[in-house]
Amino acid sequence: MRRSNRAAAGAAAWQVVHEGVKPGKPSLWARASAIPRMLGARLRGRYTQLPASRLVLFVLATLYIVSPIDLVPELFIPIFGLADDAVIVTWLASGLMGETERFLEWERSGDDYIQGHVVG
């Protein structure tokens, strides 16, 4: 991703993150550190509230952001070339904010039950 893309995407993500953390809600650090636990719990089948389709979209969005290939190259249409990356980063950041908040709530509730059996 070009430097200008990273700056625009970073600014969009910061806005989502800054507006998404409210008093009484998990901190940004708590949410970020929950991502590996959430993925691990999802892949082990313990945390079923994250649909596989949404997980795949998160992975694809991450790959798109780090990929040097853009859907809309900046060379031809500079404004839209920046906008596509910013939209993806904003969607990914807001989606992860919501998912990690639900996951942290699930962790606090101790809801490790799947079909009546404790998952250990």
Rank of each mutant, 00 (worst) to 15 (best):
A8H: 03
A93E: 06
D111R: 12
G45R: 12
G116M: 01
R108G: 01
K25L: 07
E107N: 00
L63N: 03
P26Y: 06
Q49N: 15
K22V: 05
I88M: 12
H117F: 15
W29C: 00
P36K: 00
H117R: 15
Y47A: 02
I65R: 13
I88N: 05
P78Y: 12
V118D: 06
S4P: 04
L43S: 01
S33P: 01
G20P: 06
W91N: 00
I77T: 15
V59W: 15
P23T: 04
A32L: 15
N5I: 15
G45N: 14
V59K: 04
L28G: 05
G40E: 03
G81I: 08
E105M: 04
R108H: 10
S94R: 06
L96Q: 08
A13V: 03
A83E: 13
F80Q: 09
T62I: 13
V66T: 11
I77P: 01
A86V: 12
V59G: 04
Y64Q: 03
L60G: 00
G98V: 02
P23S: 06
A52Q: 14
A8Q: 10
V21I: 15
Q15N: 14
R3E: 15
V118R: 14
W91S: 00
G45T: 13
F103I: 03
H117L: 13
S4I: 06
A83L: 15
P73N: 07
G10A: 08
I79M: 11
S4G: 01
L28C: 07
Y113L: 02
A41Q: 05
V118W: 06
G10M: 00
R46W: 08
H117C: 09
F76E: 08
Q115K: 10
P51T: 01
G95Q: 05
V72C: 02
P68S: 12
V56N: 12
G10C: 12
M1C: 10
A93C: 04
V87P: 00
S94Q: 09
P73S: 02
T48Y: 12
D84M: 03
I114H: 15
L92E: 14
A11H: 08
T90R: 07
P23I: 03
A52D: 13
